[in-house]
Design a binder for these strands. Structure first.
Lengths: 246, 246
DNA sequence: TCCTTATGTCAACGCATTGACCTAAGCATA
DNA sequence: TATGCTTAGGTCAATGCGTTGACATAAGGA
């Protein structure tokens, strides 16, 4: 007995009588992150909430970042729930990207706290497996599939981080609004082109993700073997032509 | 006298006799960031190096992030030195993106420390002005130029942040190597597609930026008004046709 | 000369992290 | 069942961190 999975464990109850394990630490941490009033997750508070010395957490996670990574991986797993790859690889790939991006944005503070973008957890691996499967089904060679999917998923994660900064409730928020307003009065001598599009500048505070996603999907659809008309490399089309235009 | 630019200032020498100003704080901070032995920049060390109480820095920058942003903006400015927009907007845009990305990667620790991606400083504004000018010259309408350039520059910055994490010398570094190796032995039942491309997985540790840049440039070249042959909106070509394929 | 106030300093807060410690859990053996 | 060993894991104290509020003082205008 005293096993978790197939591993022997030797858990001692804390002073408060709680028996710790990684899952309950993640649960509690998620609860703290959700808590109102910004940045509620700290190692010390987590210790209090768990009924343990804060340093006990370091027996389970190398540091705070490792814990955050574990949480993020769980979120990715949640976002994958119910995902089914459809007949059109472009549509499925887009949905995968949207799900991953959205799952990160559900907890902006988590994303912002985290310094490593790549969780390396089982759920992200699963997302990778699905995505690469989609590209393989589109006819990409293995090495191209890996490369293209890495481009795709890294962009989704990196932009999620950037968007999270925008969503995090802080003084940053109001500053950004002020900034967008200040755009309207840029000195035309120094920034002639910005001044020329002055009226369109407020939209820069919106997320770049949708637009980037469109561009990536567009580029991938054309890069796919046997894709639509492209004069540059005029091979005879080979391989099954995927549905065009999603 | 006692003016900086057109602003009155009232600088008192520190206990050590130094008279502070924002530029010298940035200089000193940059020197600390460069210093060997990781994470040499701390507010307290900066205080020591400046010959001032650490808290004096907060009279010049709202917090550490604001200081980092100011440094990053200077780096962007440096990276823009000598940049000339050439005749081909696609080539120029690509170079602009590469320069900004590269300037951030020159100081990975800075990038990683920073929580806000957008510096909102004069140099980033100049980069924005140049980039939007390029898109306008390509024939994009103002609102499209703003939107597309935001997509472009945000991606460059966001991926720079991700790449910086890879470059930062830390235990992360070695872990990533180990990870790439571990890829080779993924359980094929759980991750069939990953297993199928197992030999190509080590390349995931490389930066996604070049590939993403290619895709964005490709998508933009096709989105440009009067762009090359695309059956969808088969207008007669108008405006100068940009060189394809760079 | 006085007044205002920008700016330097100090002490304190809660933070993540770590090394030393200690103690009980689980094993082996009899 | 009892005994003893090893060590995972809980605890404690201390470090350096960013940040802040209270305070002090000199710069510069009137």
């Amino acid at each position: 007995m005293a096993r978790v999975g197939s591993e022997r464990v030797r858990r001692r109850p804390t002073r408060a009588g709680v028996v710790l394990d990684p899952e309950m630490i993640i649960d509690t941490a998620l609860r703290l992150i959700e808590a109102p009033g910004g940045n509620a997750l700290t190692v010390r508070r987590l210790g209090v909430e768990l009924g343990a010395d804060p340093s006990a957490i370091y027996r389970y996670f190398r540091d705070l970042d490792a814990l955050l990574l574990a949480i993020a991986d769980r979120l990715i797993g949640d976002s994958l729930a119910g995902f089914e790859a459809g007949p059109d690889w472009l549509v499925s790939l887009r949905e995968l990207g949207e799900r991953v991006h959205r799952s990160m944005l559900k907890h902006p503070r988590l994303v912002q706290l985290r310094s490593t973008r790549f969780t390396a957890g089982p759920n992200e691996l699963r997302a990778d497996d699905i995505g690469i499967g989609l590209l393989l089904s589109a006819g990409f060679a293995g090495s191209d599939a890996v490369r293209h999917f890495r481009d795709f998923i890294d962009t989704a994660l990196a932009l999620a981080t950037m968007d999270a900064a925008e969503l995090t409730p802080s003084q940053q928020q109001t500053e950004d609004r002020a900034l967008a307003a200040a755009y309207a009065s840029l000195p035309a001598e120094e920034y002639p082109h910005l001044a020329a599009v002055r009226g369109d500048l407020p939209q820069v505070t919106a997320s770049a993700f949708p637009g980037v996603l469109d561009k990536l999907i567009d580029a991938l659809s054309r890069a796919a073997p046997g894709a639509g008309p492209r004069p540059a490399d005029g091979d005879a089309e080979r391989g099954p032509a995927p549905a065009i235009g999603s």
